[in-house]
Simulated assay, not measured.
Amino acid sequence: MKFRTLLASVMTGLAVAVTAGQAPASAAPAWVETIASGTRAVDGGVCASLDFVAFGCFERDGDVLTLVDEAADGHSAAIVWQNFVDGALYRRGACVEKRGKDVQGGCNMNFKEGSEIQIKACSYEAGASGNVADKIVTCGLSSRAFKA
C-alpha cells in the first residue's frame, strides 16, 4: 500500500512538473468595433454580400472597408473581418454602418502589409450591449480572403 501511495505521489509530481513547463495557450485577440463614417462609395476592391441586407468591400489602397446597409429591417450592416499574420489570427472586428438604409460609409483599418484578411457582410445589432460576436445577427455564407 505504501508503494502505491508513493507511486501516485511521484506520478502527480511529474504531471505537475510537465504541465508547469508548457507555455500557456495564447488567447484570441479581442474584438474591435469600428463605426463607419463619411460617405464613401461602395464600388471597388474585394467585396462580400448578404443578399439585400448588407454589402461591403475592402479597398487595398488605404486599407478601407466600405459598406452599405441595404435593408430597412431595424438592424445595422457590418463587415466582420479577421486579420491573419503568418497563419495566426492577429486582429478581428467589425466595421459597422448604423446610420440607416442606403447610407454608405467606411472604416480605415490600417491592416499589416502582406497579411491575410477575411471579410463577411453581416446584419448587426449596433445598439446592443456586449461584445462584437454577440451583436452579429447573420452573415453571408461566403468569406473573401485576400492579402492586404
Results as ranks from 00 to 15, higher is better:
residue 144 R to W: 03
residue 94 A to P: 03
residue 66 T to Y: 04
residue 37 S to M: 07
residue 9 S to R: 07
residue 85 V to M: 02
residue 72 A to K: 12
residue 101 K to Y: 07
residue 39 T to Q: 09
residue 107 C to R: 05
residue 39 T to H: 06
residue 43 D to I: 13
residue 128 A to T: 09
residue 94 A to S: 13
residue 69 D to T: 08
residue 30 A to D: 13
residue 56 G to M: 13
residue 62 G to N: 10
residue 144 R to A: 15
residue 145 A to R: 11
residue 71 A to H: 00
residue 2 K to L: 15
residue 123 S to C: 08
residue 81 W to R: 02
residue 96 V to A: 02
residue 132 V to Y: 01
residue 125 E to S: 14
residue 107 C to H: 04
residue 102 D to E: 14
residue 61 D to Q: 15
residue 4 R to Q: 15
residue 64 V to T: 13
residue 12 T to F: 12
residue 107 C to G: 07
residue 81 W to L: 08
residue 19 T to M: 06
residue 48 A to R: 06
residue 41 A to M: 13
residue 128 A to S: 13
residue 147 K to Y: 00
residue 64 V to Y: 00
residue 56 G to F: 07
residue 48 A to P: 04
residue 7 L to M: 10
residue 117 I to P: 02
residue 119 I to G: 07
residue 20 A to I: 14
residue 20 A to W: 15
residue 101 K to G: 06
residue 25 A to L: 15
residue 78 A to E: 06
residue 13 G to Q: 00
residue 41 A to T: 08
residue 80 V to N: 02
residue 29 P to L: 11
residue 41 A to H: 01
residue 37 S to I: 12
residue 107 C to A: 11
residue 104 Q to Y: 13
residue 7 L to C: 05
residue 126 A to P: 04
residue 16 V to A: 14
residue 49 S to L: 15
residue 51 D to Y: 14
residue 4 R to S: 10
residue 23 A to N: 01
residue 57 C to I: 13
residue 114 G to Y: 02
residue 24 P to K: 11
residue 143 S to T: 12
residue 72 A to I: 11
residue 66 T to E: 09
residue 33 E to I: 10
residue 109 M to P: 06
residue 60 R to I: 11
residue 17 A to V: 13
residue 116 E to R: 12
residue 132 V to C: 09
residue 26 S to I: 13
residue 146 F to I: 13
residue 80 V to I: 07
residue 45 G to H: 10
residue 8 A to N: 05
residue 89 L to M: 10
residue 147 K to G: 09
residue 130 G to D: 00
residue 41 A to F: 05
residue 65 L to I: 15
residue 21 G to T: 15
residue 59 E to P: 01
residue 24 P to V: 09
residue 67 L to T: 10
residue 92 R to I: 02
residue 72 A to M: 09
residue 125 E to G: 08
residue 118 Q to W: 09
residue 63 D to Y: 12
residue 26 S to T: 12
residue 2 K to D: 12
residue 33 E to L: 07
residue 93 G to M: 02
residue 69 D to F: 07
residue 137 V to I: 10
residue 134 D to N: 00
residue 68 V to G: 01
residue 2 K to E: 14
residue 146 F to E: 08
residue 11 M to C: 05
residue 119 I to H: 02
residue 148 A to V: 04
residue 70 E to F: 11
residue 54 A to F: 09
residue 132 V to N: 06
residue 86 D to F: 00
residue 148 A to R: 07
residue 147 K to H: 01
residue 55 F to A: 12
residue 73 D to A: 14
residue 38 G to I: 10
residue 111 F to Q: 00
residue 4 R to F: 14
residue 65 L to K: 02
residue 126 A to Q: 07
residue 72 A to D: 09
residue 135 K to H: 09
residue 1 M to D: 15
residue 31 W to A: 13
residue 137 V to C: 01
residue 84 F to S: 04
residue 47 C to V: 08
residue 104 Q to E: 14
residue 76 S to T: 12
residue 8 A to S: 01
residue 43 D to P: 06
residue 75 H to E: 11
residue 74 G to V: 07
residue 19 T to G: 03
residue 76 S to R: 04
residue 142 S to Y: 14
residue 94 A to Q: 09
residue 97 E to W: 03
residue 137 V to E: 07
residue 136 I to A: 00
residue 78 A to V: 11
residue 14 L to K: 03
residue 76 S to W: 05
residue 95 C to M: 14
residue 119 I to L: 12
residue 139 C to Q: 02
residue 142 S to F: 13
residue 105 G to T: 05
residue 15 A to E: 05
residue 70 E to K: 11
residue 109 M to N: 09
residue 104 Q to N: 15
residue 15 A to P: 00
